[in-house]
């Protein structure tokens, strides 16, 4: 079994509203939403955590589609989450814990696999990442040049 990952709760908060996941990085101000199978993948990670292999297996069982397409789509999305520093490796205790139990969502839904996509919104970053020397007017934060 590969390395398990979970959400980096130090900086990442997420809420599911009307079935849609909205995530925010409190440190950078970036916020995120998903398209396609993104929520299915996020649900696997946001509980006890999961490895990429576990998520691919669950997605292959849940969705209708070619396994190689599902595997490629899930991997690309998982890498995007990692690049955005939303995940951390689960600790040893979690790593030796039994794999996440199957839920109703893991069972075959008959739904076609839709490529998961991470939508990234950065319009708030400027307020938090302002460089005090180069980017701020003399009257101070949050007034940017």
């Amino acid at each position: 079994m590969g390395q398990r990952y979970r959400v980096d709760t130090e900086n990442i908060m997420h809420e599911t509203i009307d079935g849609e996941v909205v995530i925010v990085n409190l440190e950078t101000g970036t916020y995120y939403a998903f398209d396609g199978a993104g929520e299915f993948i996020w649900d696997r990670i946001s509980g006890a955590g999961a490895s990429l292999e576990q998520i691919i297996d669950a997605a292959c069982a849940h969705y209708r589609g070619l396994p190689q397409d599902i595997s490629a789509g899930v991997t690309r999305f998982f890498n995007a989450l990692q690049k955005e520093q939303m995940l951390v490796a689960a600790d040893d205790e979690a790593d030796t814990a039994p794999a996440t139990e199957s839920t109703a969502a893991d069972l075959a839904s008959g739904a076609a696999f839709e490529l998961p996509r991470l939508n990234i919104y950065t319009d708030m970053e400027a307020l938090l990442l302002a460089d005090p020397i180069h980017e701020v007017e003399s009257d101070g934060w949050p007034n940017l040049k």
Binding site: M13, E15, I17, D18, G19, E20, V22, V24, L26, G29, Y31, A33, Y121, D123, M124, L127, L128, P142
Partner: peptide, 29 residues
């Protein structure tokens, strides 16, 4: 959708205002 309203209200409420962003995130939700 409520998610649409959340995405409109949450970012600037969290990041243009001081205070605890965690609490504000949950309260806005």
């Amino acid at each position: 959708s409520s998610a649409h309203a959340f995405k409109a209200l949450m970012p600037s409420t969290l990041f243009q205002l001081p205070g605890d962003a965690r609490d504000a995130f949950q309260a806005t939700a």
